[in-house]
Every structure is written in C-alpha cells, then in structure tokens.
Amino acid sequence: MLQIKNLSKTYDGGVQALKDVSFDVPKGEFLAVIGLSGSGKSTLLRCINRLIEPTSGQILWNGESITAASPEEMRRIRRRIGMVFQHFNLVHRSKVLTNVLAGRLGYVNPAWSLLNRFPRADMEKAMAQLERVGIADKSGQRADALSGGQQQRVGIARALMQDPEIILADEPVASLDPVLAHSIMKHLEDINKQDGVTVLCSLHFLDLVHRYADRVIALNEGMVVFEGLPSEIDDQKFKDIYGREAERVG
C-alpha cells in the first residue's frame, strides 16, 4: 500500500509542479497517471523514490515514511522500487548483461560490485530476466547496439532484478511505435498480474489506459483533477483533464 499525502513540489526556479497531491495505491494495482505535457507526471513519479526531493507532504509505503527516510534507509527502500524510463536510460557503452545486473546494486556488497563481481545467483537471475523479456541472445552486446524496443526490455529486466514491490514507469512507451508499445505494455501487465507487482505508469494514450490500467489518476497543472476507473472518463472529464480545446481522437 502506497499512500501519497498532500505532496507538493516547487522547483528551484519557482515552478510549482505538484500542488497538494493525495491518493492511495493498493498493493497489486495497475495505476495509470495521465495529463498534459508539463502537468507534473514525471515529477510525481520521481518524488516517490526521491530522485526529486518533495518540498512538502508525505509518502508512506507499508506504513514506513519514504519522505522521512535517511539516505541509508532510502537506499534500502529504493531497491524494492523498480523504475522504467521513457528514454530507457541504459548505460550505452556497457553490455546488456551489465545493465541488467545493475538492478542488483542495492543488494550486493558495494565493495565487490565496484570490481564488477556479482554472485552467481544474480548472474543466473539476470539471464532469466532477459529470457523473460525475450532478448537473452543479446546479453553480450553493447546496450546502444539495440533497437528502442529491445532497450526498453533491458530497462524492464533491470527493474525486475530489483525484486520490486512497485514499478514506476514514466511514459515507458512514448518513444516506441504502437506495435512495440503494446508488447512493452504487455510485459508490464504480465509483471503486474503474475508477480503481483504494483505498477504506477504515466501514459499519453487513452487507448493504452483503457486496455491496461485498473485505475487512473489525472493531473492538470500539478493538481489531481480526476481519480477513478478508466471507463469513467467521459467527454466532460476529458475536457477537465486535457483542457477545453482538446479533441478526442479514436
């Protein structure tokens, strides 16, 4: 259970990206976060694992406060929160396998990991995850030699290496074509339904939301303007979320 309470974020320049955002995510839910560009979706997701420091408010995870955690505790919390990015954020010059193994960095002994030594069990686990996302044959290649869709699979495998309880996915399919988008979303769905991992996923396309999400949160200028089932988004709600001039396509 993840609880967000009165979360606000004001950037150094004075932009208020989140205003008093509150909502709960029950364990095992697939929650979509939608909203216009600049509405604060990325900021919200990054506040949850504190890649961005929230200005005020609280985030509770299974009763433990993420916002009050010390750096040491934060590392322990982060290792159970996987993250998947729009631009994949792989380390280009490293091998695919190394990128996947990086998901274990929060678990392994730092001293050994600095020498690039990982336990045998982790190596096997990494190969198994690559197998699961269907690119086991690419494990020895450099990450930048892969296509976009393949890179995003590596990103998912890396998140899976963390044995996550939650996966935060920030527009995971925005830079992929529709066919690839569905295959990546299916992986996330599979992880959510099979492994019971909670997924918070920001999305641009409503058809993806209808197809995959259990519930939707909509942001507009940093405020929650809608919270409910995907099927509840009617034309009026749509205009609230995306603005008066927005036209519904498809």
């Binding site: 982060r78 993250m83 960095l105």
Partner: peptide, 27 residues
C-alpha cells in the same frame, strides 16, 4: 538519464560513479 536510473536501483554514490559515470566518460 543513466545516472538517475542507477541511483533509482538503490546504488550508493561510488556504485553510481562506477556503473553510470565511468562508462560514459572513458572515450
């Protein structure tokens, strides 16, 4: 991006440097 991604896995500062910074700056 990669820096952020490695940090998000719970890596400490030294691990982040070794896994996200050094591969990028070698050339």
């Amino acid at each position: 991006g990669p820096l952020e991604a490695i940090q998000a896995t719970g890596a400490n500062r030294l691990q982040t440097i070794v896994y996200a910074v050094i591969p990028q700056i070698i050339p």
